[in-house]
């Protein structure tokens, strides 16, 4: 399959799915931003109103982390189940299996564009003005996307081989939700060594922190760290693409037979 045709297919599949998805619900496209907002609302009620988070800027702080996290978790979750979900098509046509997770991830990107736009509006309303350091958002978002691609490909393969991984991935997302500094501040842990450890061990915590540093404090993230995360995710994604090309027919058999 020609590379341009391959990317056109990914985009076409993503757009079709978006259109179908919006026609399924009464509120249609509004759900793109309503769903993440409701998540934020739930966390806000629990941590600010009930538990009293004692942060003036808690809403903005929460949105910066939570909205980027939902992008990651939803895309990876759906991407992981995408090959198995498309087994009807896979049994009919020999196509690159990477198409299915990548189309799902691409669909998530379209939705996330609307979500980020909303985030910028909220930031503006709360008095956070854009600055030159906001230019860092582009590489951070690009690395975030690469991270989603790599994880979705790994997840899609694993679920194809053993369905049980679908459960493990959902549980893993819950674990990341609590350990990535979404409703708590990695930089306010008290022990600087612990902050360092969390940021180094969990790339997602680093990414969420980078969004906050840029949007709320006009501070550039650690460029080298970002580059390392990008390299790691890039290599992983390339390996997965190569592996899934080689094992395309094996994946088809697993998707259809187990």
């Amino acid at each position: 399959m020609h590379i341009a045709h391959y990317f056109l297919l990914i985009d076409t599949m993503a757009r079709m799915s978006l259109r179908a998805d919006s026609s399924k619900y009464f509120l249609g496209y509004i759900w793109w931003i309503l769903e993440p907002l409701l998540y934020v609302a739930v966390f806000y009620v629990v941590f600010s109103v009930i538990l009293d988070a004692r942060r003036e800027d808690f809403l903005v702080f929460l949105m910066c982390g939570k909205l980027a996290f939902i992008w990651f978790s939803k895309s990876v979750n759906q991407g992981a189940n995408s090959i198995v979900a498309s087994r009807g098509l896979i049994g009919k046509i020999n196509v690159p299996k990477t198409l299915f997770p990548l189309a799902v991830v691409h669909e998530g990107l379209y939705k996330q564009a609307a979500v980020f736009l909303l985030l910028f509006i909220v930031l503006y309303v709360y008095g956070y003005q854009p600055s030159a350091s906001w230019a860092w958002l582009l590489p951070v978002m690009a690395v975030n996307y690469l991270m989603i691609v790599a994880c979705a490909l790994v997840g899609a393969c694993m679920v194809c081989l053993v369905r049980d991984f679908s459960m493990v991935i959902s549980l893993g997302m819950m674990f990341l939700l609590f350990t990535s500094g979404i409703f708590w501040d990695v930089r306010a842990l008290g022990d600087p060594a612990m902050t360092e450890l969390v940021l180094n061990v969990n790339p997602l915590a680093f990414m969420l922190d980078a969004y906050r540093q840029i949007l709320m404090y006009h501070t550039a993230p650690d460029g080298l760290h970002l580059l390392l995360v990008a390299l790691g995710c890039g290599v992983l994604a390339l390996c997965m693409v190569a592996l899934m090309r080689r094992g395309s027919q094996f994946l088809a058999l697993r998707a259809l037979s187990s």
């Binding site: 179908a20 009807g88 049994g91």
Partner: peptide, 12 residues
């Protein structure tokens, strides 16, 4: 391969 039905995505 020309088969029936199952290759479709119902929501499309």
């Amino acid at each position: 391969l020309l088969t029936l039905g199952l290759g479709f995505r119902g929501e499309l």
